[in-house]
């Protein structure tokens, strides 16, 4: 694509005529390093993790007390154990926690993020300062913010001082979930805000002016103009947040602690299994999470039509293309 645009119209015409056979192969050749790298850093780990999930490592001891070495092929047993074995409670609990965190934090972050973006978009004195300070939480590494919030939520911490009664936030219970949600929202709402702000800034001012002339109120023009026009960007931000929060690990682990059932997520179980040298089950948990994330992302894209690779569609639209193409398929076609 880049070559076409940079090489000038004459070159482009020439290239397009030869498109029939030449440039497809050239594109494939030029892109092959990317595919090789992708295969190495994405394809290989996924396949190897799946392979690992079909094995179990020896845990038994021999007469002298030594661990019997060697991996054993167990087929899908690691998976069936997860769903129906003695630890299935832990899995369903973590699955529920993960889903709960995902729904609640993404909704909160979207609402707050949009609000933040609207504030940041306004022209007022000190706007630069507000923008910068709203982004501070996002710039702090998650583990550090986990520790900060741990101090806020400790028995004699700020949170209890503000609400005026003693809640032991880091103990098991709904309050632990709440603490994680508050900390996560604090940290990542600015991310949504930043992306939405970028979307707001490309909305031409005339549209709003025209709406005002036609007598639209603030709410009306937000609902009918701002939101639809910012929707593509907003959906991408929400999708990113979904993918991110589904694999949440460090915040609950640092803020509340490992092995606390109220906040245990799927990644925490996978981590725990791996720490205890049960790589097979750990890989199985990770694979299940991977599939879950993929399904959620796919459904989201399907249902809401999030346009991940927006410019691709625009390029296609400029030609008389079939209208209802999935953006990802379009991308693939362009790549080929």
């Amino acid at each position: 694509m880049t070559t076409t645009t940079t090489a000038g119209p004459a070159a482009a015409r020439r290239r397009r005529r030869g498109d029939v056979q030449g440039s497809g192969r050239l594109a494939a050749t030029l892109l092959s390093p990317t595919f090789i790298v992708l295969a190495l850093v994405v394809g290989y780990p996924v396949i190897s993790a799946f392979r690992e999930s079909l094995y179990q490592r020896g845990q038994g001891l021999d007469a002298q007390g030594f661990v019997v070495q060697g991996d054993k092929f167990v087929g899908l047993r690691n998976y069936t154990d997860i769903f129906t074995g003695p630890n299935s409670d832990a899995f369903w609990n973590a699955f529920w926690n993960t889903t709960f965190f995902t729904v609640v934090t993404v909704v909160l972050e979207t609402v707050l993020g949009v609000a933040m973006a609207l504030v940041m978009h306004r022209a007022f004195r000190g706007r630069g300062l507000v923008r910068a300070s709203i982004l501070v939480p996002w710039a702090i590494p998650t583990v550090v913010s986990g520790l900060l919030w741990r101090w806020v939520f400790q028995a004699d911490g700020v949170a209890n001082a503000i609400i005026g009664k003693q809640v032991l936030w880091t103990t098991e219970g709904f309050h632990a979930k709440l603490a994680v949600i508050i900390a996560d929202t604090w940290k990542t709402a600015p991310f949504v805000g930043l992306l939405v702000l970028a979307g707001l800034q490309v909305i031409p001012r005339e549209v709003h002016e025209a709406a005002r002339v036609d007598g639209a109120g603030a709410w009306h023009s937000f609902w009918r103009i701002t939101l639809p026009m910012v929707k593509p960007v907003l959906l991408v931000a929400v999708l990113f947040r979904l993918l991110d929060v589904l694999r949440m690990f460090d915040l609950p682990a640092v803020l509340i602690g490992l092995h606390k059932d109220s906040v245990e997520t799927l990644t925490m179980i996978a981590y725990d299994e791996a720490t205890n040298l049960r790589y097979g089950p750990a890989a199985a948990y990770a694979t299940i999470l991977f599939v879950y994330v993929a399904v959620v992302a796919y459904t989201f894209v399907k249902l809401l039509g999030a346009d991940i690779i927006g410019d691709m569609r625009q390029t296609r639209a400029s030609r008389p293309a079939r209208p209802k193409r999935k953006p990802l398929a379009a991308a693939r076609e362009v790549a080929a």
Partner: peptide, 11 residues
């Protein structure tokens, strides 16, 4: 005390 349920060494 109740809050001891949240104590690690440093707390």
């Amino acid at each position: 005390p109740k809050e001891a349920i949240t104590y690690e060494e440093e707390d």
